[in-house]
Design a protein around this nucleic acid. Structure first.
Lengths: 218, 218
DNA sequence: CGTTTCTTTGAATCCGGTCAAGGTCCGTGG
DNA sequence: CCACGGACCTTGACCGGATTCAAAGAAACG
């Protein structure tokens, strides 16, 4: 195995980033809260892997409407857009650390090149799967179902007793195709019904999982 | 160039299928209107390329709600799902001809294998782009904008004076996340406003393109 | 030519949006 | 340490676009 191959495997390690790598994997970068990692319409140069923090990918329409494509958490690969330029921008939701790798490196050839391409297409496939789930969510779910399945998917991702929401209400709204007021109302309702419990607006725990599963109804 | 490579290039030729191939490209199959080409949850065995007719990919929820993932027209490759099993089913909208190629052929190796993988990932990328546009449409557009941009995208695809809608109102509704009544009303309104003109419910022409562009507003 | 399926149209309803006001959380500086 | 200011979140009242329910009309098919 070449060291390039090792690098690529480390970069694309699925799941959360746990082990300390012995050698640097791509270039490590740090971004502040709200800082842009790459911009919409900018040429695609790199692939990114989130080490810590959380990232959102967003798309702006000319009239100011905003759509969030996805949220990324530690271990996720993002920025792998297929065209020449980025169709989304990416911003940190808080301070975050990112590993950066050249998207098209002429130095990569032979085995390494194949390896890299295969990993990229695996990551693209995961992206497509998530996009398709997102479509189902947006097209055929009520506000309550959207919010329920959103909470559920974050909780499932982190599997901790207490789940932290790294994004604002506005971010949730722009992801789910709702307004902040509706988000707030639905969260209030879920709490009033004893399904979840909030401690401050960014921390919650699930109190009645089967009810939440039922409400998410997918 | 090996004959396998030729086959793959022919199969994945972008755009409409115009030239007669000198040799068969995959296996040609014929499906009747409404017939299932592959089923949801069925293992992925083949990749498909539409020669004539039109196809929809659909997903069914347990409670009967239906979502259409996409419509495919001659020249499009479909059925390239990333998991082991199909997350959608595909059905012909009318009678249609399809070319079928094994998704995982052990006989493909070396150059051919690379070639094939590259083509698959190009097609997957296109699919992802479309899914992302679909997300924007569903999350942030009004019924009128949805219907307008739908008509526009079909018209742009075929670029004929008179455009044929191969799908039913129900199909349009399940694609756009609306009801058939709303679809019908919006089409009626667009016609009343002189933006489009319908001849029967499956044929229309654009009478005022700039107005339609403005309504589609993306 | 009759039956079935699909489409259109109308009236009433409801879910989520809009507008507006008030509350909470934090960081900053007096 | 507390007061102030601003950003974010919650809550209420009202509104409107899309759905629902219902029925009539048009098209497809045997």
């Amino acid at each position: 195995m070449t060291s390039q191959a090792l690098l690529i495997d480390r970069f694309f390690l699925p799941g959360a980033f746990t082990a300390e790598p012995r050698e640097p994997v791509g270039v490590a970068m740090q971004f502040a809260a709200g800082e842009e990692i790459y911009a919409q319409a900018e040429p695609v140069e790199f692939v990114y892997r989130l080490v810590s923090g959380a990232v959102r990918s967003t798309r702006l329409l000319s009239d100011g409407r905003r759509q969030i494509g996805d949220f990324y958490y530690p271990g996720d690969v993002f920025g792998l857009e297929t065209s020449e330029t980025h169709r989304f921008s990416a911003e940190g939701l808080g301070d975050c650390q990112v590993q950066v790798l050249k998207r098209f490196a002429p130095s990569r050839s032979g085995e390494d090149r194949i390896r890299f391409d295969r990993m990229i297409s695996a990551a693209t496939s995961r992206e497509l799967d998530r996009a398709q789930d997102h479509i189902l969510l947006l097209a055929r779910m009520t506000a309550c179902e959207k919010v329920s399945s959103f909470l559920l998917s974050i909780a499932n991702r982190f599997k901790a007793e207490l789940t932290v929401l790294p994004m604002s209400r506005q971010d949730m709204a722009d992801y789910l195709g709702l307004t902040i007021e509706t988000i707030s109302r639905m969260l209030g309702r879920l709490q009033a019904d004893g399904v979840v419990e909030f401690m401050g607006c960014r921390h919650f725990r699930i109190r009645h999982r089967s009810a939440l599963d039922r409400l998410a109804a997918s």
